[in-house]
């Protein structure tokens, strides 16, 4: 047996390496390069040239904060199961849940308790008992004050109808679904009228994510210069624009004052910084579609700017 294997090994090692091998490998690399260029979806983070851009991120870190010492909220909400965790936010973003598929973001309930409002996300799975929340991410941003929630492994968004009810909250200005090309994820955004303090807890049995909001401090007074696409309806073009800009720091999709949508590729403290970032995105990221710099205040919704303006 060993001898047979030895013979096989010998034959294997005798396989002649053709001269064209290196050329074939090089061709593979070339094709890879072309692929990147063509798609212009360079999925590597932008190498920011100067320190200017880096400074932006520092000076505009989220000022809304998580609520300290928030015990006791647990028993105030009767429907809840067991606490899985309290989310720790870094730069306004945090997530949890477990990876699943076929989940339905079933319904969202709004509860008001004194100073606080709670948004309760419920998950359901038609195939099995939904005891754990599906993998999700919650992100808070400013200009305007926004919370974006994305749930992966979700094929259905029955709760879309409940977004209207969220507007009954004293904090909520608007709530709207976001288009995504990923058919196994759902996303929606909630715009707040003013800065909010927030706390997010995840529960199991049943699977729920509870977002508690109360009035926050630290209203930003300075304007920012938003680098964004023109306004457009929530369609494939919009989703593709977001996909093309993937990797840009501070990327998000927003609804404007007239109900159209735009993709924002970050915002900056000065117009010059925004212009510079635009150049960088166009050259290094290879984004060829038009971008606009828009001045915006903290609580202000983006303006409706059409492509031909």
């Amino acid at each position: 047996m060993d001898k047979q294997l030895e013979m096989m090994q010998q034959a294997y090692n005798d396989i002649e390496i053709p001269q064209e091998l290196s050329a074939a490998a090089r061709k593979g690399i070339e094709r890879g390069k072309q692929h990147r260029r063509k798609n212009s979806v360079v999925r590597r983070s932008l190498k920011w040239g100067g320190s200017a851009a880096a400074a932006v991120l520092v000076s505009f870190t989220i000022s809304v904060n998580t609520m300290p010492a928030f015990a006791g909220s647990l028993e105030q909400v009767p429907v809840l199961g067991k606490l899985v965790k309290v989310l720790q936010f870094t730069q306004g973003s945090a997530g949890g849940g477990t990876i699943q598929d076929g989940v339905d973001v079933d319904f969202i309930a709004l509860k008001t308790q004194g100073e606080r409002d709670q948004l309760i996300l419920n998950f359901a799975n038609p195939d099995e008992d939904q005891t754990l929340a599906s993998s999700y991410n919650v992100k808070f941003t400013e200009y305007p004050y926004t919370m974006t929630i994305s749930v992966s492994g979700a094929r259905k968004f029955s709760a879309a109808k409940d977004l209207e009810t969220l507007k009954e909250s004293r904090f909520v200005e608007d709530a709207y679904p976001l288009i995504t090309l990923d058919d196994s994820a759902i996303r929606f955004s909630v715009t707040f009228k003013e800065p909010v303090a927030y706390e997010v807890k995840e529960y199991k049995d049943p699977a729920q994510v509870v977002i508690t909001l109360k009035q926050g401090a630290g209203d930003q007074k300075q304007p920012v210069y938003s680098l964004r696409t023109p306004s457009q309806p929530a369609g494939e073009t919009l989703a593709i624009a977001e996909e093309m800009l993937f990797g840009v720091e501070g990327l998000r999709m927003l609804k404007d004052q007239k109900g159209l949508f735009l993709v924002e590729a970050g915002y900056y403290p000065t117009e010059e910084a925004a212009q510079e970032a635009m150049k960088q995105i166009q050259t290094e990221h290879g984004y060829a579609e038009p971008l606009i710099v828009e001045k915006r205040m903290a609580g202000e919704l983006p303006q409706m700017i059409s492509a031909d303006q």
Partner: peptide, 20 residues
């Protein structure tokens, strides 16, 4: 030989676009 080279090329291509 040709098919094997094709596979090499394809492998390198796929590796290049997903190395990140």
């Amino acid at each position: 030989k040709d098919e094997a080279l094709e596979i090499v090329q394809e492998t390198v291509y796929k590796a290049y676009i997903s190395i990140h």
